[in-house]
Design a protein around this nucleic acid. Structure first.
Lengths: 147, 147
DNA sequence: AGTGATTTAATCGTGCACGATTTAAATATT
DNA sequence: AATATTTAAATCGTGCACGATTAAATCACT
C-alpha cells in the first residue's frame, strides 16, 4: 500500500465520512418513506411546508439549500402525487407559491413517528447525536469565502 | 408556524444537517477538482486506487460503499478520460480489475495539495474536525440492524 | 415612456445513487 | 456429467443535484 501522500488516505478524509454517512442515513429512511411513496428529498420539502404553508419556491430553496433546477421537478412530482399544489403569485407572476393539499397536511401526523424510529435504529446516545449535529451546523457557516 | 410536531422541525433534524453538510463540502471541492476534470465521486475512486492499484470493482465498491450500478459508468468515464484501464481477470472472467494509467498515477502528486486547501477553507479547528469525523464513523457502525 | 439590469422559475444536459433485473461465469450439489 | 445456486459486473429506469441557460416579469434609471 502506497503512502507517499498520507493526506490522500481515504481513512483520513472527513469529507468521505460525511459523504458516506449522509447516504447511509438516507438509506435508513427509505423503508419508512417508501410506505408513503416519498423520497428523502421530498420528505425534506414536506418538513419545510409542514412548518409554514404557502411558501415560495425560492424560500423552500433557501431552507433546503436547493435551487429551482432541483426543486421544480421534485415539486411537480409531489403535485402529481396529490400532496401539494403550485400557484403563481398574482401580484408578481415570477413567483410561485406552493401549498399543501389536505392529503399533504394529513401526512404530517402519520410521519411524526419517523424521527423516533430513526433514533431507535442508532445505538449512539442522544447527547452524541446532538454534538454531531452542532458540529455539522458549525461546518456549514465556517468557510471563509461566503457564496 | 405550526409546531404540533416539534420532532418534525427541520432544525431539529440531524439527518438534514448531514445531507446539507455533505453537499456543501462537495461544492467546496468542485473548483479544485474541475481543474483536473474530475467529479467528487471520481476523486473518491482515485483516492482508493492511489492507495492500492489493480483493485476489483467489487473491492472498490466495498471501500466507497457503492455498487456496480454506480461504479461501472463512473469507471467507464475515468477510462474515457485516460485515468484508468479495466481488465477482466483471466482466472475468473466474472471479475474486473481496475488499473491506474500513467496519467492516473501522476495525478496523485498533483492532488496532494487538495486536502490542505480544503482545510484552509474551514475556520473550524482541526481538533473539532477530527471529533466530527470520529462521530460520523461511529454513526456508520452503530445501527442495530446490519445491512 | 423606454431601456437596461435584476429576479424568479423553468429548462437542459451531465453525472451520480440506487433498487431491480440480467448476463455470464464459477461453484456446489445431486 | 447435469443441474442448481451463487457471485460479479453490467444494464435499466427513476429521481435527485447542479452548472448553465432561457424566458418572463419586475424594477431602476434616465
Amino acid at each position: 500500500m502506497s503512502d507517499k501522500h498520507p493526506e490522500l488516505n481515504l481513512d483520513n478524509q472527513l469529507c468521505f465520512s460525511l459523504y458516506a454517512a449522509s447516504r447511509h442515513i438516507t438509506r435508513l429512511y427509505q423503508p419508512m418513506l417508501k410506505q408513503h411513496n416519498l423520497t428523502y428529498p421530498q420528505y425534506i420539502v414536506l418538513l419545510i411546508l409542514w412548518q409554514k404553508e404557502g411558501m415560495l419556491v425560492k424560500d423552500i430553496g433557501e431552507r433546503a439549500q436547493l435551487k429551482s433546477n432541483t426543486l421544480t421537478p421534485l415539486l411537480k412530482r409531489l403535485e402529481q402525487n396529490g400532496l401539494v399544489t403550485r400557484q403563481r403569485d398574482s401580484e408578481d407572476e415570477r413567483q410561485c407559491y406552493v401549498y399543501l393539499t389536505e392529503q399533504g397536511k394529513s401526512l404530517e401526523s402519520v410521519c411524526a413517528c419517523i424521527p423516533s424510529q430513526m433514533l431507535k435504529q442508532t445505538e449512539m446516545p442522544v447527547e452524541k447525536l446532538i454534538e454531531l449535529k452542532q458540529l455539522l451546523d458549525q461546518l456549514m457557516v465556517t468557510e471563509v469565502h461566503g457564496k
